[in-house]
Nucleic acid binder design. Structure first.
Lengths: 202, 202
DNA sequence: GTCTATATAAAGATAGAC
DNA sequence: GTCTATCTTTATATAGAC
């Protein structure tokens, strides 16, 4: 708790690395970037992470996924009993965090890790994030709150949908990301009132 | 048209680069990767692209965006008059191509280019891809085929949604990506039958 | 148009002082 | 715990032969 807590140096390295990795991906971030952002030289990182860049990245990703999982669970709980509330809570949480960019993670970053480490992280994403979303949709489906649907597909779709809002230039669009997230969730829940027979009948 | 068409060497370089850049991103692909994939040395690339990696990448991205725009327009036209048909055509096209990963492009890859080049490419994405999707939704909205919605937001959401299917492991899920795309489109169009008053009434 | 060879720069990693 | 070298590898880029 002292102004510069020496025992927490490792945590500060993780914070710096997470910020940079999340923004630019594994290959675009150097150990010197990570170190200099917190006033260290890159050599110091090897004291905390003897395994070098790969070990640091793997730990960053695992901590990131776990925090996302915990935050998501808490946010959905706080969203109240309705599925809409839970999904809005999930959106608020996801948009409060730096983008996870799961596509890049799966397609690019994880290829830099040993296959077992990559698999382990993907399993964590599924277990701690996708599964939680999926469970809530399944529960709503079982209780009759929503109609027939594929909860697994919807969970992945919702995640991709909300995450894609991170790349919307808010300054140009002039709308809050959370407001856009809520609107997209309502579209999922209620649709956009498509008239099947429109062309036949007009 | 000869088996090895010398005048088309530049095009083959672009093809190789596009394949690799699309899969792993700017920083994770080396000029040696691109060259050796087509039986050249990296030095040969400088004959076709004197500006080096950046020039090659910028040209690849521009060609990629233009092809996506043209393919999207053709696929939506072929989808027939209904919005559902057009969107399914769009999904079929997007899923037939390597992932564009617009989030990575916007958040990572474009930062490696000069700002004007980056802006130009983002403008092209908007003009040739998002705007086309948006126009179709707007037209359907104007004709009464669908109800009130935000066409711009929906266009971006649909793109993110369909693109995210690229990272679904088909072998595990056991479903065709196009089938999943169609289901998600139907969710957008018709919703998942959310009962607003479920909790109050049960 | 493509090659070999080389220059230059950047990044991961290690050794040893403090 | 962190630093200052230093080593090694890898990548972009260029020069000049063919």
């Amino acid at each position: 708790m002292s102004p510069v807590d020496p025992v927490d140096a490792r945590g500060r390295v993780l914070d710096s690395a997470e910020l940079l990795f999340a923004g630019k991906g594994f290959d675009s971030v150097t150990l010197r970037d990570i170190a200099s952002a917190i006033g260290l030289t890159h050599a110091a990182l090897y004291y905390h992470f003897p395994g070098g860049k790969e070990e640091l990245f793997a730990e960053v990703m695992e901590r990131n996924i776990r925090r996302h999982g915990a935050g998501l669970a808490a946010a959905m709980l706080a969203g109240g009993p309705s599925l809409r509330g839970k999904l809005r809570g999930a959106a608020a949480w996801l948009l409060s965090q730096p983008p996870m960019d799961l596509i890049r993670m799966a397609e690019t970053d994880l290829k830099a890790l040993p296959p077992e480490a990559a698999r382990r992280l993907m399993d964590l994403v599924y277990e701690l994030i996708l599964r939680k979303l999926q469970s809530e949709i399944e529960a709503a489906r079982a209780s009759g709150e929503v109609g027939a649907c594929d909860p697994g597909l919807l969970a992945g779709g919702l995640l991709g949908l909300v995450e894609s809002l991170h790349s919307v230039p808010v300054a140009i669009v002039g709308r809050d990301r959370y407001a856009m997230g809520c609107e997209l969730i309502d579209v999922i829940l209620k649709g956009i009132d498509y008239r099947e027979e429109h062309h036949a009948g007009s």
